[in-house]
Computed example of a mutant assay.
Amino acid sequence: MRIAFYGSSLVSAYWNGAATYYRGLLRALAARGYEITFYEPDVYDRQKHRDIDAPDWCRVVVYEGSIPALKAAAKQAAQADIVVKASGVGFEDDLLLHEVLSAARPTALKIFWDVDAPATLAMLRADPDHPLRLALSSIDLVLTYGGGDPVVEAYRAIGARECIPIYNAVDPRTHYPVPADPRFAADLAFLGNRLPDREARVEAFFLDPAARLMGRRFLLGGAGWQDKPMSENVAYIGHVPTGDHNAFNATPKAVLNISRTSMAENGFSPATRVFEAAGAGACLITDAWEGIELFLKPGEEVLVARDGRDVADLMAIPDERAKEIGKRALARVLTVHTYDHRAAEADRIFRARMRPREAAE
């Protein structure tokens, strides 16, 4: 089956947190026989910051950030059996949705794939006339990379025919244990771009504990933090290319996951970094959110902090216990949380909904 996938970027993770998710899931679907074309706009300097070449398992079409180029790319949806418009493409999203749905064949499976459901739902609730909300009745399926029952129920309440989460996972071919790298030596490391929906929680869960533990070394990676006040024991290293993520996760004593506020409040929304860290065998400390036990067992495969004081207390964990937690997390994600597992689920979903369409042709 042919998939036309319209997303933010497959070849650049620059200001693009969905890149890891797209790569892992689409590579695994390609291995199952899907012929995939990924359409992405040339915006936000992402093409200047490519971190992978176009892969051999997916055709990548980069189109100019202009209305004519968008419409030309959208017309290609007519060639696909499954048409996917993702959230947060970054250039004229509403127009792109309209053009893609208009171009899709009547028998094509039309999907809206939401990679930030809490933010999208807040936007749709605030505007009953939002183009996406009005289009839900003509979309066959909403898939999300997190959210659980709260997101499913919320989407159905505003008109979605069906909503199913396809969670983040780990791709063992790209995220795995590596030797320690002196560049990333630290007691606690956090990697995340500076966003309004996350900044206060980074202060509470990372910068405040660092200020209380001046004898320990903290490492901060991600874009946008250069003018943020922080204590002298915090080393800020800026954007970390995906090729360095394994070393970033495997080297420190522990790494920290801090959910954005909307994700934490919603729950059931493990970030890609949760699985990246576990895949590298890291001892992961995460902020508390509902549903964590569905993915990793608190106290054995992950450490959970309710606030910054908890984070500071957890830094007293012996090195050997930290290593054991990382080993258990790695074993868990390889057993049940790889993108091969997620692709098998997506494949079942696609085929179950395509069979009636194929029979009707």
Rank of each mutant, 00 (worst) to 15 (best):
A126S: 13
P106V: 14
D81Y: 11
I67N: 01
E99N: 09
G90C: 03
D127Q: 06
A104G: 03
S102Y: 09
S87Q: 02
D114C: 09
E99I: 14
L141P: 03
K110S: 05
P131G: 02
Y145A: 01
S137G: 09
V100E: 00
G88V: 11
L141R: 07
L97D: 00
S66Q: 08
Y145W: 03
A80G: 12
Y63V: 08
D94T: 08
A103D: 04
S102M: 10
G90E: 05
I139A: 01
M123R: 10
A72K: 14
A78H: 10
A117R: 12
D129K: 13
A103C: 10
A78Q: 14
I82L: 06
I111E: 03
L134Y: 04
G65W: 01
K71L: 12
E64W: 09
S66H: 09
P106T: 15
D94Q: 00
R105Y: 07
I139P: 09
T120N: 00
K75P: 01
D93H: 12
V83C: 10
D116M: 01
V115P: 02
A135C: 11
S102R: 15
D81P: 13
L101S: 06
S138Y: 00
K71Y: 08
T144S: 12
T144Q: 11
P128L: 07
R105E: 13
K75R: 15
L109C: 11
S102E: 09
V62L: 04
P68Y: 14
L101G: 04
A80D: 04
D93Y: 12
T107A: 14
I82V: 15
A117P: 06
A86M: 09
R59M: 08
V62M: 01
A74W: 11
A119P: 00
Q76P: 10
K71D: 04
A117V: 12
V115G: 01
E99C: 12
L109T: 15
A77I: 13
L124F: 04
K85G: 01
V62Y: 02
F91L: 06
G147T: 14
I139E: 08
D94Y: 01
M123P: 02
A80K: 15
M123W: 09
P118W: 08
Q76T: 15
A126R: 10
R125S: 03
G65V: 01
A117I: 12
L121P: 09
D140Y: 06
A72L: 11
L124T: 05
S66N: 04
A135M: 02
D114A: 05
P128C: 12
L95F: 10
L143W: 02
Q76V: 10
